[in-house]
Design a protein around this nucleic acid. Structure first.
Lengths: 236, 236
DNA sequence: TAGTGGTCTAGACCACTAC
DNA sequence: TAGTGGTCTAGACCACTAA
């Protein structure tokens, strides 16, 4: 753990727990410098990250104000796996592997995210996510077989990311996502209990490793009445 | 313009124009330091921003790779006004003010974004956005009358943000957004040409000033078949 | 081994706020 | 005027990659 990460984590925890309350000022950068025994630059890097994530807002001459503690309205944002999200939110969640199939990657659904997608051997996993026993999401993953040879049912129903990172030691760096609203397919209707006139919220994403290799293509189909996604953004 | 911003803008422009091609390496940080006559820290701050925005990816020992040039698939992400987006995308776009009404802010649609919303006198603007003469978005803005006393039809049909920033000199700092899928209301059906069974993609957002004041509440209702939103995210 | 990015430090000067 | 955050510098050491 790096020093600035320690500072970042500590401040974040204290904000989440209300130790630094919303609308109150954090200690000044100089005070934090003494508190953590770090240089001002290290403190500022931690604060920068908190600003980017929507935790705090700085004002020259005044100080740094807490504007938000973490919200978890099931953000589809960021690069967090379903497992990580459901654990954080203490959800009663269960995943069932519906289908596992080796095939060639269908590129068309992903070209608008990355024009360079190319056909490759993948493993397709179809999984149904339930929250409180109610089916809410169908996840269809296409995983590069050159990077991940196989995936067991146990892994598929627990956490792909934990397997990728902790067992295979893959370094997942970033992801691109796309949101659309589409008509419910027959599979959507069957698995999510929808009618032909219903819409679904579709999130397609491509995950990349540190060396910029794309290795995971996901199509996530959400029951429309359960879909809610929040985002924080800074101006210019 | 600050120095790091100059470096950032220059690199971004060169990436967008293909001068630094996708999948190629940028000059090393030391080379950039000499190119721009800046310290390494200044260079690194510019690069950090490019990384956060999904332009480049760094690898220790190797260098910094261009992974993407800017895409504009009408991102609802970020804090960009409709006017800014449509200009960048060279769209044939037109906005019509449908209704202007002083009233009290309806808080319920926004509580899940910011639990501290409170009733206040606002001006409600209802605007219809057309692209190639086709109606695609209804924007319903509630604007704090204490911050913005009035808005002319001309401003409403051009750009609110240009008016806020350039005329009123408001410093818009950040925004929180929420995406949902909802049934088409009667107004949606009439203005967007939808049927009662159709869904709409709804983006609700709250914009905040530098002093953390919330001053603009927006409900943006999109024709589902025209809605497409892209996002870039880094892992932890 | 040389070159790359990642982390950290100490110090300087500036713009802004509050008193 | 004192204290705050914003920008910028110069230098150090480390971890990693590639030849």
């Amino acid at each position: 753990m790096t020093k600035f990460n320690l500072v970042y984590q500590d401040l974040k925890t204290k904000i989440d727990n209300g130790l630094y309350a919303k609308d109150s000022l954090l200690p000044s950068e100089n005070q934090l410098r003494e508190l953590y025994g770090a240089s001002r630059d290290t403190i500022r890097r931690a604060l920068l990250r908190l600003k980017d994530e929507g935790y705090v807002q700085s004002q020259q001459g005044k100080g740094t104000t807490v504007i938000n503690r973490q919200q978890y309205v099931f953000p589809v944002s960021g690069v967090l796996s379903y497992k990580e999200l459901s654990t954080r939110m203490n959800m009663n969640s269960r995943t069932v592997l519906v289908d596992k199939q080796p095939m060639t990657l269908p590129t068309t659904p992903f070209v608008s995210i990355d024009p360079d997608v190319h056909a490759m051997p993948v493993l397709r996993l179809t999984r149904l996510r339930r929250i409180n026993e109610e089916p809410v999401i169908i996840d269809i993953d296409y995983i590069d077989r050159a990077v991940v040879p196989d995936i067991s049912q146990t892994v598929a129903e627990d956490s792909l990311y934990a397997y990728f990172e902790q067992t295979l030691h893959l370094a997942i760096a970033y992801a691109k996502k796309e949101f659309t609203v589409e008509h419910a397919t027959e599979q959507d209707q069957q698995l999510l209990g929808l009618t032909p006139t219903d819409a679904v919220a579709v999130v397609r994403s491509i995950a990349y490793l540190e060396d910029t290799t794309a290795f995971q293509y996901t199509e996530s189909r959400h029951r429309p009445d359960r879909f809610r996604f929040q985002e924080f953004a800074r101006r210019s």
